[in-house]
Amino acid sequence: MGTKVARKWLWWILAIHLVVLAAELVAPHDFARQVRTLSFAPPTPPRWIDAEGRFHWRPFVYALQRDPRNPREFIDTTNERHPIRFWVPSEPRQMGPMVLKYRLFGTSSPTGIHLLGTDRYGRDMFSRILYGARLSLFAGALAGTLAVVLGLIAGTLCVTWGGWVDAFLMRMVELTISLPWLYLLIGVRAFLPLSMDPVPVFVLTIALVGTLGWAVPARLVRGVLKTAREQDYVQAARGFGASEAHLLFKHLLPQTRDTLLTQWALLVPKCVMAEVTLSFFGLGVQEPFPSLGSLISVLTEAHGAMTRVWMFWPAVALGLAILSYHLLAEALQQHRDV
């Protein structure tokens, strides 16, 4: 029962990751493309019924223009429909090893479609959210993986070495848990150069966040291994002259699997939030590269973003992603309890 639910959430999370991974393809605009005339433009929803009330099979958008009576607001330019097409040609751009010449969807006119509106510089929010989510989610997933791996190694060391190694590592675990992680994270980050290319920042963030997350998995792995070692069948294997390696790989480590998976699901949202918080404070990737954190931090700036509802979409996207991870963790934990 629990496994079924867990598998469902795992697929859903995988789907999110795949979509954001293909941001170059899915996003209708480049994340840095500015259209100065479209500062804080509201979303252009896909429409099927035009201004004259006629129905069209192919959805379309109207371009936006400033309202002559109220220059803060935008109105639809209803004299021309811009049909939304799939697989529209675009300027060639690199996605990993591939060169893309198409976008998944868009309009053929340069006006473009802004599903979730634009920001202060007239950049497409939907595209920026996709790119930003890619950075934040993958940083979180990789940092969570790193934390779990470090925890596994540390916990295994505790059990195989024992003695002072065990005592020392457990002391470090307590220390890591009782310290304020955010101060620690920011503290270490602060001693490194502030403006860097996005790739080093990405790697650095993963390394920092992952390293700080090792404590809880390490303690749990240690506990699991300790009880596992006392089991009769492990003692029996020792009786066959089994080496420590045989015991570890055949009997002990397989038992940590459930714990590790649950810990991973619990850690990833924390790591995503760590990256988001870092970039929220301007310590992550620098403009124009988006992260969910920097997209959210716009809301606290005094440029009137607060009053534009669509500027909250990054927060909503983040909330949904975090919620998905929590539901996965919940399902995994239930599976273990049953």
Binding site: P269, V276, G293, L299, G319, I322, H326
Partner: peptide
């Protein structure tokens, strides 16, 4: 409590704002 646990601090702060 489970629901609250799923909302990160930052988003809670945004809700507060």
């Amino acid at each position: 409590v489970a629901a609250l646990l799923a909302i990160p601090e930052l988003l809670l702060a945004l809700l507060g704002i």
